[in-house]
């Protein structure tokens, strides 16, 4: 089975600081792969390299069979519509209403509308995150949890095959965090997406992960299911589960 994302021996440095040192992963269809690591271990850098917000220094980086460093800007923009990205701070466009936030990517990629009109797509996507009533509101009028859900709706509206989640539950209270996790699972069922999730939240990892990678010093330190990793006696691994 061909992986949707294939990364091998990936390296990224900022000056003298080596953030990723020969990192590797494969994400398969329908899988939820969770990456955990301490702050500054290179998790967010990894996600940004996948969508080429940052250029990797060296290594193999393929998404949907395409080598990311070799794509031109047009090809990269086309590929980005297949890869959703949920930012840690939601990153909603604060000068636009909820409707305009969802409309923005859709207007620029009309091929993603699949014969449906913009309005019905926006409403149905908002309904799938349970926030159809917020369509006319500005982001500042929404709570942190609602903003995160709208950001997820904005990601889903282009019907991506892969979603990259950057700390999806950070800054949220436990109840809202649980709602977001349930929504992520629901989105996966409804939209048949695969997900690469970066998180500190082990509750989130336990519920959502099919497989986990522990990232330490920019390398794959340990890999396996939540249960397998939590049973490892290694103190550096155990530090994440305590």
């Amino acid at each position: 089975m061909e992986p949707l994302i294939h990364i091998d021996n990936l390296n990224k440095s900022f000056g003298e600081q080596h953030v990723l040192n020969g990192f590797h992963l494969d994400l398969f269809e329908g899988e939820n792969l969770v990456i955990v690591g301490k702050s500054g271990s290179g998790k967010s850098v990894l996600l940004k390299c996948i969508v080429r917000l940052l250029e990797a220094d060296s290594g193999v980086l393929e998404v949907l069979g395409k080598s990311i460093p070799e794509l031109n800007q047009y090809e990269m923009d086309r590929l980005r519509t297949e890869v959703g990205f949920l930012f840690q701070g939601s990153a909603l466009y604060d000068s636009m209403t909820v409707r305009e936030n969802l409309e923005f990517p859709l207007r620029r990629h009309p091929e993603k509308m699949a014969g449906q009109d913009v309005e019905s797509l926006i409403v149905s996507t908002l309904e799938s995150v349970g926030l159809a009533h917020t369509i006319g509101l500005m982001p500042e009028e929404l709570s942190g949890g609602m903003q995160r859900r709208i950001a997820l709706a904005r990601t889903l509206i282009l019907r991506p095959r892969i979603i990259l989640y950057d700390e999806p539950t950070s800054g949220l209270d436990p109840i809202t965090a649980k709602e977001i996790i349930e929504l992520m699972l629901k989105a996966q069922r409804e939209y048949q997406t695969s997900a690469l999730i970066i998180t500190h939240d082990m509750d989130c990892a336990r519920v959502i992960a099919n497989r986990m990678i522990i990232l330490i010093d920019g390398r794959n330190y340990a890999e396996g299911s939540y249960e397998a990793l939590s049973a490892l006696p290694d103190p550096r691994v155990q530090a994440f589960f305590k």
């Binding site: 917000l53 800007q73 959703g84 990205f85 930012f87 701070g89 604060d94 990629h109 904005r154």
Partner: peptide, 21 residues
Amino acid sequence: AELGSMKVTEQIAAMEVSGTN
């Protein structure tokens, strides 16, 4: 100020990853 604020809150990055220039 507007673009600076969009930059630090990753709104510009969000546009980029949605395939918009």
